[in-house]
Amino acid sequence: MSGAVEKVRFGFSVNKDRQIDYDANLKNVSDIVQKAEPTFNLCISCGTCASTCTAGKFTDFSLRKVILMVRRGETKGLENEITKCMLCGKCQLVCPRGVSTRNLILQIHKALKTGAL
């Protein structure tokens, strides 16, 4: 069905839904990460990490967003996103909730690589 040939050229295609479909998304990465680094649960999305981020100076990398995406199961493309991190640890120093941000990055990446299947 899905591989149908476009017979009629309409000049447009169906827009992709931006909506996060939480029920359809896989949460296994989130499950793995929260076990591997329990402080993952503590993030309150204050954004201190993203604002001090060394990589964030040059890119739109935001650990706050990454954490939320993992929580929501929006893991597509996240693997690339995480490669921007320099692991410098500034975020860890400024995080008010004591999130072990560096390990979090490592664990998220590991989970994306190994657990996302």
């Binding site: 990589a55 040059f58 890119t59 690339n80 995480i82 490669t83 921007k84 991190c85 320099m86 692991l87 490592l106 990446h109 590991k110 690589k113 190994t114």
Partner: peptide, 16 residues
């Protein structure tokens, strides 16, 4: 050994 799957990429630094 533990983290080698993570291959950071800092291509964006070229612009800096």
């Amino acid at each position: 050994e533990d983290n080698k799957l993570l291959v950071p990429s800092f291509k964006y630094l070229d612009q800096f």
